[in-house]
Each structure stands twice: as C-alpha cells, then as structure tokens.
Computed example of a mutant assay.
Amino acid sequence: MSAIEPQPESSELTTLRTSSLTSVVEKEIERMILGGTLKPGERLNEFQLANRFGMSRGPLREAMRSLNARGFVEVVRNRGVFVRQIPVEEALEIYDLRSAVFGLAGRLLADRLTDEMLVDLKSYLVRMDQLAEEQDFEAYYPLNLEFHAYLVTATGSKTLKREYQSFVDRLHLCRARTLVQANGLAVSNHEHREMVDALASGNVSRAHEAFFRHVQRAKLRFVSTLRDADIRRD
C-alpha cells in the first residue's frame, strides 16, 4: 500500500493561521506598550520583534498596521515604526476640547433619545459591568469605544462626530493607559451609567454636565497615572 501523500495546506487555513498569529502578536505588543516595557517614542525594531516572537515579518507588519490604526504606534516615513507619544500639555488640552464636544453631544442627545436607544445603551452598560468585574481590558476597551461612538453618532451631527473622532484618535494611548493603570474600568462604567441616567431623565442640562464631567474625570485619572509613573521612577 502506498503512503498517503501529505496535502498542501489550503489558502484559507494559511490565512487563518496568519490572522490568528497577527492577533496574538498585536495583543502582546499592546500589552508591552501599556505596561511600559515599550516606551513612548521608542522605535520598534522589526527584526528584533520577529526574533522575539519566532515569526516571519508578514504577520508582524499586519500587527503594526492594526496598532497604527488604533493609535498605539505611528509610522514615520523612511524612519520606521514608533510607540506613539503625545506631549502631556497637548493631551490635557485635547481632554478639555473633547469634554466640551462630548458635553454638547449629551445636550443634543437628550432631545433625541428614543426608547430603542435607551435599551441599546443599557445593554452596553450590562456588558461593560461584566467585563469590568472580570478586569478584561482587551474586551472592555473596544466596547467602551463603541459605546462612546454610539452616543456621538446618535446625536445626528456629522460635524460633531468628525471633530470628536479626531480627538479620540489622538488620545487612544492616554485613555487605554488610564483604564489599565488607574483601575478605571469599573469607575468609568459607573460614570457611563450616570450619563445614561441623565439622558433618560430628559434634562438637557443634566445630560450636558454628565457627559462633560465624564471626560474631565478621565483627564484627572490620566494625570494620576503620570504622578504614579514619576513616583516609580523616584
């Protein structure tokens, strides 16, 4: 009886393997950035990372592209990939601008809220409460972004949505570190619940204040992570 010849791996299976590997590497590099192993402004050496993870450069480059799109790294032409950094003063200014725009979103949405929207928002809260209790940052963070995007989109203002997103894109790393290092998951979702309660009340001023205050509190948590980092360096 002749031996069965091994069959070449299908293109679909190859794609699945590559996709899974890319996802694993992306999460590990994200963990290294959030944990401080990779510092803001540090160049990511593709050769060293490929050796570290025992992988080819193809999936690694895919992971880098995804991290760039999510705001964790930036690609500098003819220089390479660097951990994204933003001056503290600029970050604080963006937090203030974001709080103003987000406060306006609360005011506008309070006049547009429907029963269906309220059901959707409460569903977000339940899911994020569970993830916060489990301390599952990897699942919480994208759902948190989705929740905020839902709120802003529901205002019906395309201009507000565009401007708000520009601030979000520049603050990704600050927000992610704040949630991780300041134990902010449960605290953040408590504030989300205050926002939804304010919307449900139909009180426009209350909704504006709740949305504005949420971002200002996030700014304070960001400042606290900077102080903690200074203490650790001392």
Rank of each mutant, 00 (worst) to 15 (best):
P87N: 03
R17E: 11
Q135L: 11
Q135E: 14
L118Y: 11
V187N: 02
P59V: 10
G202S: 07
V168E: 14
R170K: 14
F53C: 04
A50M: 08
Y95D: 03
F53W: 09
S188M: 02
T225P: 00
R84S: 14
S188V: 00
E138Y: 09
S224F: 04
M55I: 15
A218Q: 09
L97T: 07
P87C: 08
G202F: 08
E163P: 02
A63W: 05
R98F: 06
R206Q: 13
E90Q: 09
G156C: 04
E12I: 09
S166I: 06
A176L: 07
A132K: 00
E62R: 15
H172C: 03
L97K: 12
V119Q: 13
S2T: 15
L13I: 02
V196A: 00
T225K: 07
E62L: 15
V187F: 04
F72E: 05
V187A: 09
R233N: 11
S205V: 06
A149E: 06
G41S: 11
M32W: 10
G35K: 11
L16E: 13
L67Y: 05
M128R: 06
S23Y: 08
L60C: 08
T15D: 13
L60H: 02
D234A: 15
L108K: 03
P6E: 11
E12Y: 06
N144D: 14
T37M: 08
D111H: 13
A105H: 03
S23N: 10
A182V: 07
D111P: 00
Q130G: 00
A182P: 01
N189M: 00
V83I: 15
E93A: 09
Q48G: 01
I4H: 09
T15Q: 14
H190F: 10
E134W: 04
E62F: 12
L185A: 07
R177S: 00
L38E: 04
A210D: 05
R232F: 08
V25T: 06
S19N: 13
L104D: 04
S10V: 03
L67K: 06
A207P: 02
H148Y: 01
S123W: 11
R112F: 02
E90D: 08
P6H: 06
S19D: 13
R65L: 13
F82T: 15
M32I: 09
Y95L: 06
R221N: 09
R193A: 03
R70C: 05
L145M: 07
E209R: 12
D120R: 15
D129Y: 07
E89R: 07
L125K: 03
N203G: 07
H148L: 04
K161S: 12
E163T: 05
M1Q: 08
M64W: 11
I33N: 02
S19F: 03
A176R: 01
D234K: 14
T15Y: 09
V76E: 13
